[in-house]
């Protein structure tokens, strides 16, 4: 086992983590992240993304498995890892009664910074994250977007080699989200920073990540660039929404009828939604509708589109991303 491999910014091998009541958060998760790239951990709530980040940032201990971050083993040399990384949690962790500047100053102190160097770094970060005017106000008075920007600034004070961003845009309005995306893209260009971000927004992963791992139930289902992952699904995606969910016999009939249409491949049924692939999506639609009508299946809507990460997720996890998200939320929140 290559536990001392330091050629990656982050390398995790077979991470397993179980919480009380036998909740398996990670079930043999392995990923490698090259230095200088933005790596996305994409998965629905409860997939194990946050747990993975907690282990990689030395906050939690895995039951088994190893991880090397910025060249150091997280279990054997947690302090070395801590010095080399920045970690930005999902929610605001700043002292609400302290000012933004005070929060940044304390964070710098904890990494042994001080004096003019720290003051300059703080000014630089306040400038960069558009917090200059709010710098001497209590964090309690900040908007959601400002708090999130301050969190990222906190993670960057000591110029880490690897920055972990856990759900960086969850809860932000569209405008603030777009601004955060620009910020993250710019950061990656700087100083060879490696960024590991978790997200349950397909669009976010698609847009930001150089490479990504699709995670479901504590395991990596697929890894690659967004283009590679989508490229594996050749042709267009055809989605047919049915009027009602089907019983087993009708489902088989519908699948068989659709699969028999020339040019249609990889038919899958998820609830009341049929999905298939076709080289030319629009061209197969009339034939598909006729075939389903012949099988006695009532159709509500049809779409044909270029493949999305959602299609990639469906292929690997066997269900729609939004459904997995909803299932896990009702089944007991995120980990």
């Amino acid at each position: 086992m290559t536990t001392t491999d330091t050629s990656y910014a982050v390398a995790a091998y077979d991470l397993v983590k179980t919480y009380p009541k036998n909740v398996t958060a990670l079930d043999g998760l392995s990923v490698t992240v090259d230095a200088g790239q933005i790596f996305g951990l994409l998965g629905p709530n409860g997939a194990g993304k946050t747990t993975a980040v907690k282990i990689l940032t030395t906050l939690a201990r895995p039951d088994s498995g190893t991880a090397v971050v910025a060249g150091h083993d997280v279990a054997r040399h947690p302090r070395r890892v801590r010095t080399a990384i920045g970690a930005v949690a999902q929610r605001s962790s700043a002292d609400p009664v302290a000012t933004g500047r005070d929060n940044l100053a304390l964070q710098g102190r904890l990494y042994g910074m001080g004096g003019t160097a720290l003051r300059r770094r703080i000014d630089e970060l306040l400038e960069r994250f558009a917090l200059v005017d709010a710098a001497d106000r209590r964090v309690r008075t900040y908007s959601g977007g400002m708090q999130r920007r301050l969190e990222v600034a906190l993670g960057l004070v000591h110029r880490p080699a690897v920055l972990f961003l856990d759900e960086p845009t969850t809860g932000l309005d569209p405008e603030a989200r777009a601004a955060m995306w620009d910020e993250i893209t710019q950061l990656a260009g700087d100083e060879g920073l490696t960024i590991v971000l978790t997200t349950h927004y397909l669009e976010e992963a698609d847009r930001l990540a150089d490479r990504l791992a699709i995670i479901d139930a504590g395991r990596v289902m697929a890894t690659g660039t967004p283009a590679e992952l989508k490229g594996e699904l050749y042709g267009d995606a055809v989605h047919i929404d049915l009027r009602t969910a089907l019983d087993e016999a009708a489902a088989t009939a519908a699948r068989t009828a659709l699969a028999a249409v020339p040019g249609v491949r990889e038919v899958a049924l998820d609830g009341s939604r049929l999905s298939a692939r076709a080289d030319d999506g629009a061209a197969v639609v009339p034939g598909a509708l006729a075939a389903l009508e012949g099988a006695g299946v009532a159709v509500a809507a049809v779409t044909a589109a270029r493949p999305s990460l959602d299609d990639v997720y469906l292929r690997y996890a066997g269900r729609r991303f939004a459904d997995a998200d909803a299932d896990l939320v009702t089944a007991g929140g995120e980990s």
């Binding site: 964070q107 904890l110 990494y111």
Partner: peptide, 8 residues
């Protein structure tokens, strides 16, 4: 948690 992932 933020403090615990710093070297403090």
């Amino acid at each position: 948690n933020r403090f615990l992932v710093t070297p403090v």
